[in-house]
Design a protein around this nucleic acid. Structure first.
Length: 477
DNA sequence: ATCGGCTCGCGCAA
DNA sequence: TGCGCGAAGCCGAT
């Protein structure tokens, strides 16, 4: 495991007299293909101490809802089964009320040889980690298992996919070779942990899969999504995609009426599957581009694979990792102010243009606009927790067109996506939205009202280019 | 049906 | 300094 993956937040020797090594799982919520768990196991083996995995879910984080909670708790059931079978202590904890979990990590860390956790460059996790670092009295490491490349491998954020592709193409082969262990729990067993430190289980009791979400102070107006979360569902989804849909990905992925996308985004977001495992399933044995291929930033043919695999890997590697790189290196990544200067310039020059349709956030949230295709997209987001890629672009463009200002449009899109999308609050998802306002894109003439030179899209043209009849029917009122 | 122009910033070649 | 090129577009001319 490359040292760029490990961020030492508290640099102390591993305590020989600790009761266990603590892995505080917050982002890579899985037991396979995970650098963080692998690191925690390695420290525990060397110290000959048990491992304790704490998987926590707060109640008071932004947008906490039945939907997001259900998905994470599904994953906890998988992790519980796997870890308990491997003889590793596992403590799943869902906060009953905001703040109740305060002190749990510190209470465990007092007895720990060292603490390992996940490094995730977005949402409230960096702040939570910084706060925890002040409470943990022993060695604390945050492990970056987000992507094929460590998120901090570059020292700058890239402005375009083209520029990032050049960078990735020159380095990817080496990083692909440095993959996490498929099963970090394999090999010699660890000593068993006799029990949690006194008082911990009483004050912070373990959560059951059957927990009653209705009793939690979270947003009950966003019901669970129609898909199950967790590592097992993620793996099933991955293998189903590779077997059933990958071959037609290039031809079908942009067509809302065809069931052609991978649907892996929510699982990647919650760490129920790793980018490495997805990569290995899609491009088994891939080690390097064809002989003599230059890292020129071009998309086609670089991998030496068929067009469908190349198209999917461009999503998984170029676009996803571009957004993680941006999220880790730019403080303003998740804000309107983080848009490229040309885009802000042109949007603000048109901020006061008259709007033909001006909707309130409530109109948008309730899918009450004059545009049936947009309403269908919004209903898919609200009902299913996802939004087809092709329509997400159109969806965002129209939020810009129908909002009082570009800044307000950005806030609304972020709100709707973070609240309803299972993969909201993720760098990749956030970049997909910001793209609608010019991020990673280029200007396109002619200059238009509201958009300026930001790329324009119309529902009419979208419906002309791709079939949406079935989509409109399925996501009708 | 296809084509060019619209427009900006970059990386590289010269 | 010039040039080619880029997430998925749009529109009008041919």
């Amino acid at each position: 495991m490359n040292s760029l993956r490990i961020c030492v937040l508290r640099d102390e020797p591993v305590r020989g007299d600790g009761g266990f090594v603590l892995y505080w799982m917050v982002a890579a919520r899985r037991t396979r293909h995970t650098f963080a768990l692998q690191r925690a196991v390695a420290i525990a083996r060397k110290a000959r101490r048990p491992l304790l995995v704490l998987e926590a879910l707060r109640a008071g984080y932004p947008y906490a809802s039945d939907r997001l909670h259900r998905f994470v708790i599904d994953g906890m059931a998988d992790n519980a089964a796997r870890l308990r079978a491997a003889g590793v202590a596992y403590h799943p904890y869902v906060e009953p009320r905001p703040g109740d979990g305060k002190g749990l990590v510190a209470a465990l860390a007092r007895h720990a040889c060292a603490v390992v956790t996940d490094d995730f460059p977005a949402f409230f996790l960096p702040k939570m980690l910084a706060a925890a670092a002040a409470q943990v009295p022993c060695r604390l490491e945050a492990v970056d298992g987000n992507g094929l490349l460590p998120v901090r491998v570059a020292d700058r954020a890239f402005p375009t996919a083209y520029a990032f592709r050049r960078f990735v193409q020159a380095r990817l082969a080496a990083w692909v070779a440095d993959a996490p262990a498929p099963d970090p729990l394999g090999g010699p067993g660890l000593p068993r942990l006799p029990g949690l430190p006194d008082g911990v289980a009483e004050r912070w009791p373990a959560t059951e899969e059957s927990i009653d979400l209705a009793r939690l102070p979270i947003d009950h107006d966003v019901p669970p999504a129609p898909i199950r979360g967790g590592e097992a569902a993620a793996r099933e989804r991955l293998h189903d995609f590779v077997a059933q849909r990958l071959d037609a990905y290039d031809a079908d992925r942009n067509h809302p009426d065809r069931d052609a996308t991978s649907g892996l985004s929510p699982y990647l977001h919650f760490g129920h599957v790793s980018a490495h495992e997805v990569f290995a399933a899609v491009a088994p044995g891939w080690a390097a581009p064809p002989e003599g291929r230059r890292p020129d930033g071009r998309r086609d043919g670089w991998w030496g694979l068929d067009p469908s695999r190349e198209a999917f890997l461009d999503q998984l590697v170029t676009w996803r990792e571009l957004s993680f790189n941006r999220s880790a290196l730019r403080e303003d990544a998740a804000t309107y102010d983080g848009l490229p200067p040309w885009a802000r310039r042109t949007l603000e020059a048109h901020a006061l243009d008259p709007r033909q349709h001006l909707y309130s956030l409530d109109d948008l949230e309730s899918a009450r606009t004059h545009d049936p295709l947009w309403n269908a997209a919004q209903r898919q987001l609200v009902r299913e927790g996802r939004l087809h890629n092709t329509l997400r672009m159109l969806w965002g463009k129209k939020v810009l067109e129908w909002s009082p200002s570009p800044r307000e449009a950005f806030e609304r899109m972020t709100h709707l996506n973070d609240r309803y999308a299972l993969d909201g609050r993720d760098p990749n998802s956030a970049a997909g939205i910001a793209w609608c306002l010019g991020l990673f894109d280029r200007p396109w003439g002619p200059e238009r009202p509201i958009f300026g030179t930001v790329r324009y899209m119309s529902s009419q043209n979208t419906a002309r280019k791709v079939a949406v009849r079935e989509y409109l029917r399925r996501h009708g009122p």
